[in-house]
């Protein structure tokens, strides 16, 4: 059983997950270096699927490489680049290599990336992909063709707690849960009030759904500006950016801000862990989760 599943389903431990840096040219040596950095601290790490619509080594091969080197992957699959056949073969291929944590999401549009002229696929959407994964875990492809034995998927998804239509986001989380999602990694959120309303609402309608909010480590107000202006679906309040901009030490203030947001998130119902991501991979990632009570694993 995956560590992520074991911890989320059978313990009350807080889980920590992170993002595996996209693999381009550094080969297995690069993978090993990142595994060595992340493995002592994180329960499972996302193997992303062409994040922000930029091509990289594929989700499946990255997940396999991570697993080979001893880091548990959460393999993401986005609906932008593959049709339903390819998405099912991604999942089956992952299962072949013993990868069971699968997270299914819509994905940024092709226009968010560096090849905006690409055809966008979106043959199925995330809720449909989740239901197909659930069906596969039950022993059938979408067509009904049998899979024996059925893959032992632990299915996850992503939701944005702080994007319009705000009042619908809880229902959408419930829809994904009903389709088969057991955990939700939440989009980066700089509105603690919205996150709180979302988590409380989800805890009421789907108490078994495990919530994992995401926090982004930034070093400056400029980075927050970038997030606000460039990452779809993330709004950073002007007052939050000003707080960092007006500080004597922007780096310290940004860190303090993120820590405050994370501590607040951990106090919310349904929240079972944190997902941490950063732009530039530095020591603050480890410092951050240490400050939140994480100790390295043996």
């Amino acid at each position: 059983m995956s560590v992520l599943r074991e911890k989320l389903e059978n313990t009350n431990d807080v889980v920590f997950t992170a993002e595996f840096p996209s693999v381009d040219g550094a080969g297995m040596a690069g993978v090993e270096k990142n595994v060595a950095r992340l493995a002592p601290w994180f329960d499972a790490v996302n193997a992303t699927d062409n994040p922000a619509a930029h091509a990289h080594a594929s989700n499946t091969t990255t997940a396999i490489a991570m697993k080979m080197h001893g880091l548990e992957p959460i393999m993401q699959i986005v609906c932008r680049d593959k049709n339903r056949l390819a998405i099912q073969s991604d999942m089956m291929g992952a299962s072949l290599h013993g990868i069971t944590n699968i997270s299914l999401l819509t994905g940024d549009d092709v226009t968010a990336g560096d090849e905006p002229e690409s055809r966008r696929v979106f043959d199925i959407d995330s809720a449909q992909a989740i239901n197909i994964a659930r069906g596969m875990a039950g022993g059938t492809y979408l067509s009904g063709r049998a899979i024996k034995p059925a893959p032992d998927f632990y299915i996850g998804a992503v939701e944005n707690a702080a994007a319009p239509p705000f009042n619908y986001r809880i229902q959408r989380a419930l829809k994904k849960h009903r389709a088969g999602a057991k955990f939700l990694q939440l989009q980066i959120c700089y509105h603690p009030d919205r996150l709180e309303a979302f988590c409380k609402g989800v805890a009421e309608v789907a108490p078994d759904l495990k919530l994992i909010p995401t926090f982004l480590l930034v070093k400056s107000a400029k980075s927050l500006d970038y997030v606000h202006n460039k990452i779809p679906g993330i709004d950073v309040p002007a007052a939050t950016i000003a707080r960092v901009r007006n500080a004597n030490n922007q780096r310290d203030e940004a860190y303090k801000l993120t820590l405050e947001l994370a501590r607040h998130a951990l106090s919310l119902p349904g929240v079972r862990g944190l997902h941490v991501t950063d732009f530039r991979h530095d020591d603050s990632l480890v410092e951050f989760i240490s400050d939140l009570g994480r100790r390295p694993r043996n």
């Binding site: 609906c79 932008r80 999401l105 819509t106 940024d108 549009d109 226009t111 968010a112 966008r120 979106f122 959407d125 995330s126 809720a127 449909q128 992503v158 939701e159 944005n160 994007a163 319009p164 239509p165 619908y168 229902q171 959408r172 829809k175 989009q187 779809p232 679906g233 709004d235």
Partner: peptide, 27 residues
């Protein structure tokens, strides 16, 4: 919807309720 989503909005909806892909269009 530019992503032809049948089960609700993606996570890219802008603060003003407009589309990630077409900023001038309401989601």
């Amino acid at each position: 919807c530019p992503k032809t989503l049948r089960n609700g909005p993606c996570g890219g909806v802008r603060e003003d309720g407009n589309c990630e892909v077409k900023p001038e269009m309401p989601c």
